[in-house]
Design a protein around this nucleic acid. Structure first.
Lengths: 154, 154
DNA sequence: GAATTATGCTATAAGTCATAACAGTCCATC
DNA sequence: GATGGACTGTTATGACTTATAGCATAATTC
């Protein structure tokens, strides 16, 4: 046999190969997607040591900013469907980061535990730091950029 | 039993519920992701009648702009891993939209068929139209916006 | 010519997201 | 105060995307 274990030189290096023409490069949607994926992968790295997914972190952050909020409202705010929110909340409860209490017979109110609040502050600070770093490297007015993006997706 | 079949009033309306505070709204990464998802869902709608996924359409567009290009270069250009590109190309070959030919013993060259070229022009035009529509509704200089996004993700 | 690298392929696993259906609860209206 | 409709949470499931590991072959480099 030739190589035995790792491929090791799989993708990852952008060194080799011809540069191809791509009509996609001129599209706002494509550039948004690439830029989004770039920042998002930074956030994934920030979150990995805490064993949190992006969805879980979003949940912690929104619940932390809205103690006692309804689970259904969190779902709407984050555009996460009820069916997918349930296991997300379940995992955070299992880690004692979130507690829930019934509001009425059907609605649940969510609140961070002490531990959850500490974690939320920690990751929010790191995420904001990572985000600022990306924003500061742009030579465009950050406020008008954010406003423009808000026009696309309110 | 009460309701029998459709939930019908599941998510989809943003009417009800309290508006929650979200620290995420100030993050560039989060706004980029939302804006990206918004435009991307338009593109998915454009592509649905043609029975094409976003990945498949990207493949057609890049191969159409680079007849005879190497499959490996396409993968790098679109940041699609080899292992995932294979079935993508396979489906396009099965629909007679793409043909391949060996360059050397390992590399493949990809080219659109007549039918593939016609389809590529069609969807590229529609995607560009949808993209322009989104861009024109922004009150920010489109060129500096694209340049800024390119700074984030070259 | 031997080791390394490149390319394509297969199989598989993980993660995200959407849909359907169900059960319990609230509410408005009659 | 009963009843039908709407809201909420839950479960189960399937589709789709992406990542990883390994294999086979061919090119490259020394």
């Amino acid at each position: 046999m030739t190589g035995k274990s790792h491929d090791r030189a799989d993708e990852g290096d952008t060194t080799t190969g011809a540069r191809l023409a791509s009509p996609l490069d001129r599209l706002l949607g494509y550039r948004l997607r690439r830029a989004s994926m770039m920042l998002m992968s930074d956030i994934v790295s920030v979150l990995r040591p805490f064993n949190l997914s992006v969805g879980e972190a979003s949940l912690l952050i929104v619940v932390g900013a809205n103690p006692g909020c309804r689970q259904s409202d969190v779902g709407r705010a984050l555009e996460i469907k009820r069916a997918n929110l349930t296991p997300l909340v379940g995992r955070m409860k299992a880690r004692d980061l979130i507690t829930d209490a019934p509001i009425d017979g059907r609605s649940l109110s969510l609140t961070l535990t002490c531990e959850g609040l500490a974690l939320q502050s920690e990751i929010l600070a790191r995420i904001e730091a990572s985000d600022s770093k990306a924003r500061d490297q742009l030579n465009i007015d950050q406020q008008s950029l954010l406003a423009a993006l808000r026009e696309i997706a309110p």
